[in-house]
Write a protein that binds this DNA or RNA. Structure first.
Lengths: 208, 208
DNA sequence: ACACATAGATAGCGAGCACTCGCTTTCTAT
DNA sequence: ATAGAAAGCGAGTGCTCGCTATCTATGTGT
């Protein structure tokens, strides 16, 4: 039970509290929303003082922007994992969509949406978020090219991605249940299946 | 230039300021967002005092819920107007989708989305909004039945509606430009066209 | 060992918030 | 005409917020 007198370098301490703050911000945004993600709430969640927060981030907005960039890489990685699956049959595509839905409902994506909504009413935040936004979109497109690039014309890649992710995002917004990871519901399940059928039949597989 | 000494009944005055407040709330929500829609801001927009607001609405939340019900009827009406169009060819469906997109980007719908997002983090608001939410969804489904009921199986009505409106809602959330009514953009235009093609080919027209 | 720089904690400030209260103005019933 | 009710007003109240000033603790170069 001896309290380990961990000898940490300054850089370690710095990095430790910074990631603690970023993770705490993700948690707060996901379960309380943008408005209730006050600096005090984040500090309580991270287990540090407000003084510590404002040492590393000049303003609340800077913390939020840093958090956006923090989760953006995670989001791309999670999206990339769906690439592994085959996309030959309707069942394949449907399963990819179901997997994508779970990814879109994850806290990291919820964080991203929360910040985007707040940015609509906050011009400063909007411009501060723009680079991360464009970077994320480009990376998503690159991943989509890996997934579907061989199956559909290059010009249709972005539009199809737009249909799919916007539909899933819209779905995420209209989900207000306390547990967003709950069962998809009959209508949603059927809607995803329908979308899969439409995509597959619209882009018939080339005989390999 | 004589100031008309309008003789108004009490009920007239009451109704007048109430609708002024509701319309002002719609405006504030649409152009400033939920957080910045303070009672002071709404009163300034409506041209009444805070005392007047709190005479008619016990809390800010009551005002917001009343506003939600206020716009819900408008939203259904705007949605219903799209029913008039034919949906025979791909061009017809594409035009309906384009029209729907404009409707979804309107201030009334923006108001509704703003409240839904706020409700995710506010359990009280969520339950207060639930009846209006269910009513709106039922009415939308009824209108959709008028539009597409003859073209697709009854069980597919709700899922198709889900795909379409969730995609448009997701699109609305990702639009951060100062002028949301601006040109749709190449990708969006193509995405809507694609969706129209998919729907029409998936539900081929019966020979009349 | 010691001076210094960096990290973290705490108390507090001014602004803005939802909401209240005492008051005046405007309509209504008798 | 007049009493009473309803509508409207705006200064004030307590509270929370982002942020700062000040202090202590801890690691770092010499």
């Amino acid at each position: 039970m001896t309290a380990t007198p961990t000898r940490r370098t300054q850089a370690d301490r710095r990095a430790g509290t910074i990631t603690a703050l970023l993770d705490a911000t993700v948690t707060c945004l996901a379960e309380r929303g943008y408005a209730a993600t006050s600096t005090a709430a984040v500090c309580a969640e991270a287990g540090v003082s407000q003084g510590a927060l404002f040492r590393h981030f000049p303003t609340r907005q800077a913390l939020l922007v840093a958090t956006a960039e923090h989760v953006a890489t995670r989001n791309v990685a999670a999206f990339r994992e769906t690439v592994g699956a085959d996309v030959d049959t309707v069942d394949d595509v449907a399963e990819v969509l179901t997997h994508l839905r779970r990814v879109v409902l994850s806290p990291a994506n919820q964080t991203w949406r929360e910040l985007l909504v707040a940015a609509r009413a906050d011009a400063e935040l909007r411009t501060a978020l723009l680079p991360a936004r464009e970077s994320l979109q480009a990376q998503m497109l690159a991943v989509a090219a890996d997934l579907w690039g061989a199956r559909l014309p290059a010009g249709d890649l972005a539009p199809v991605l737009s249909v799919v992710v916007n539909m899933l995002d819209g779905l995420a917004f209209s989900v207000l249940d306390p547990d967003p990871a709950a069962a998809p519901g009959r209508t949603v399940e059927r809607a995803l299946r329908l979308l899969a059928e439409m995509i597959v039949s619209h882009y018939p597989q080339e005989q390999s």
